[in-house]
Write a protein that binds this DNA or RNA. Sequence first.
DNA 1: CGATAGATTGATGCAGCTCAACGCGTGTGG
DNA 2: CCACACGCGTTGAGCTGCATCAATCTATCG
Lengths: 269, 269
Amino acid sequence: MAIAFWEKATTMPDSGAPACSLCLFRHVCRIAGTDHAWQPLALHPDRFEVRTGEPVFRQGRPALTVYPLRHGSAKQIYESPLGWRQVTGFSLPGDVLGLEPHESPVYGTAAITLQDAEVCAVSVESLRELMQRPPLREAVLEVMRRNAERERVLLVAVGSMRAPQRLAMLLLDLAGEQARRDGNRDGMLTLAMSRTDIASLLGLTLETVSRLLSRFAAVGLISVRQRHLRIIDRDGLASVYADLDQAPRQADAGNSAGYGVVPGERRLA
Amino acid sequence: MAIAFWEKATTMPDSGAPACSLCLFRHVCRIAGTDHAWQPLALHPDRFEVRTGEPVFRQGRPALTVYPLRHGSAKQIYESPLGWRQVTGFSLPGDVLGLEPHESPVYGTAAITLQDAEVCAVSVESLRELMQRPPLREAVLEVMRRNAERERVLLVAVGSMRAPQRLAMLLLDLAGEQARRDGNRDGMLTLAMSRTDIASLLGLTLETVSRLLSRFAAVGLISVRQRHLRIIDRDGLASVYADLDQAPRQADAGNSAGYGVVPGERRLA
DNA sequence: CGATAGATTGATGCAGCTCAACGCGTGTGG
DNA sequence: CCACACGCGTTGAGCTGCATCAATCTATCG
């Protein structure tokens, strides 16, 4: 039998303190109040709450505001022109919802909360003003680059990795994010999203996700009970992800130019 | 039997005139020479040739130059941190290779030519100067937005559509691009990329791509012979893409917020 | 307590992957 | 000029990973 989670709360834990310390705007925000070197530009963002399952904003609507997430979590949903919907990512406290790249005039995805959440609201005008300042500008661009990279990794995962690898990847990613936030590296994590959301993100079905979680647990990589999960064997998961014994699902993108690919030199997230 | 392609040349046709008229920089470029209202900013880009299969640039290298494509075509290849490679798109004359979003300091993908190609070379400094001017700036951002949208559509396709739909999508897309370039709407197109490249893009195997093309041909949607392809029944292909009789491959991304989705209002292409 | 949404688990089928053989077109060396 | 090889594409046969369908279980809430 697995480790006893159920001694802890069975409802979604509300991580207590707001995530200002992780916020992109912490240095210019009166609420965060960590640094006041920027007085003239300081932000006093509005804050409000969004209940579980409610959208913070919807795809295609004018992108007038960005929403740093203080409490709770959210999923991004993209709907293609033909009406296919897919989860494209999850956000945790400290992330900024609605940061659209390329100065897009509309939101490229919808953001739906996964729990009751609290967000700040920063107008894009303030954002643009703030971005006159090189350090913040760089920080914002860096976040956008990371988001883009994330989507590319997801594309490759969905396009050429097997189901267990995809799921292992997600779990490692979630654990990494968790650790980056509360420094908590014991592998405990609470999945705010449903199996269906995970399945959508990874291009699988919820049954497959459920079965794989069970299988991972059976072989001692993790333990799961509902949405409470603990990573027991991080390296084991990493080797599932890295495919150390699993055949690739399809042909590699041709290396027809014949330029060498260094087989070593790979970093693990 | 299908339409007789093989009367035409069997090698890749070189589309003759350079694609300056489609180039993002046509209004500021001395070579294109269509408009000289911008004298002080005018470009005199270098040009050079890249032979089949050679990279124009490689992923991870400093992004110092963008390369408008004059002749030929190219594929973008993304390599994930773990070494998985996947084709993420194809470029045709008039497209700009190496336009990195978010002012990324390095190329996010490699660009490999599919045929002997000719490119211009515009330094990012010139590009940034040019982008001071609102109209060009807007045009560049618009291109980046389209690229991002394309990648999202691809993600959804690979993540939740069936193989025939994905391929139909690609064919329609290629035909659309072709039409946008030479106005030629007779459905003839020449695939510059191999089956392997197509397979990689769509998250399939080359055998599946080959079989599907044959099947499409067998039911009269297209005709194929090697890399020469004609779209015979555009609407038929569109309905394969739109899945008018094909079951979805997986559960929809939950609409758990219960906000209505308009079932109509969808645009093709 | 029943109702409901989410999660687990089992049984079954098939789309697409895998392995393999062969065909076609082009380039190369004799 | 032919012979051969090599890259690319096609086609077939078989297998399997994951989807599908369906039943049951678990938590939460009124």
